[in-house]
């Protein structure tokens, strides 16, 4: 079996043909401070309200205040993976350079936030359920999501030729998409220790408004913060990609 030689990025051609990374850099440097600022303010208000002002639950008392990080983290774990899948389609079908780079930057942030959802859930589960961990359908499927993120991180960085890694990572990410509906509906389809969703699109939130509002603010803040982090990392990735290209041109000109 013959493998083609590793294809180094051809700076001169690619940079001009795909102007988008450059346009992204200009746009992102304008948006970044606003995105970061709004995210910080929303998370600050949401968590401050949730910790000090919002009422405790009638049974769970103060332990349920963990909800203000656990639920946003869990939502982001899934929606971040959805973003990763969209980037994977863009990179597989349209060979979009920016999507390649974005996918590689989403997965570490997604893995961190999934780990956070798992650990805060565990910390909440011990005093309330009486167990750090149980193998019910919801917890197991989120653990699988965490492993999918880890697999993507490793796969994207495992090849000499970055494009090969990005392709393989995209395939893995798309295979893993089956897990998303399993996570979402696990609590409805099967008996689980984890309770069903409190907030549904049909509108009947079984949650007091005094608890719901800080949760929504915190979730919005975490989401914008996730976007801001990915955007900053993507800017760095685009710059690093350019640096590689420039260095390659230099060595070619010198040689």
């Amino acid at each position: 079996m013959k493998f083609p030689p590793a294809i180094a990025p051809r700076p001169g051609h690619i940079l001009h043909r795909f102007a988008n990374p450059g346009r992204f850099l200009r746009l992102a440097s304008v948006v970044q401070p606003y995105l970061t600022g709004i995210a910080l303010v929303l998370v600050g208000i949401g968590l401050g309200w949730g910790l000090f002002i919002a009422p405790g639950d009638r049974f769970q008392h103060d332990a349920m205040r963990i909800i203000y990080i656990h639920v946003p983290a869990a939502w982001l774990a899934s929606s971040g993976y959805f973003g990763l899948a969209i980037c994977s389609i863009l990179s597989l079908v349209w060979r979009h350079k920016l999507a390649d780079l974005a996918a590689a930057e989403i997965s570490p942030v997604g893995a961190a936030i999934t780990a956070l959802a798992l650990v805060t859930g565990s910390i909440w589960g011990k005093p309330m359920w009486g167990a750090w961990w149980v193998w019910d359908a919801r917890l197991t499927s989120v653990l699988v999501l965490f492993f999918l993120y880890l697999g993507h991180i490793a796969l994207v960085r495992a090849f000499d030729d970055p494009e090969r890694g990005q392709r393989a990572g995209a395939i893995l990410a798309l295979v893993g998409v089956v897990n998303l509906p399993i996570i979402k509906f696990s609590v409805d389809w099967w008996n689980t220790l984890h309770q069903p969703a409190s907030i549904t699109l049909s509108g009947s939130a079984s949650m007091d408004p005094g608890i719901l509002w800080p949760l929504l603010l915190s979730a919005a803040g975490f989401s914008l913060g996730f976007a801001a982090l990915v955007m900053a990392r993507l800017r760095a990735a685009v710059m690093e990609w350019r640096i590689r290209g420039l260095l390659l041109t230099r060595t070619r000109e010198a040689g």
Partner: peptide, 17 residues
């Protein structure tokens, strides 16, 4: 050998309930 509590999806302050 083990008893776990299962709480529901309702969150409500004591005054409201």
């Amino acid at each position: 050998s083990e008893v776990l509590a299962k709480h529901d999806e309702t969150y409500m302050p004591p005054e409201v309930s």
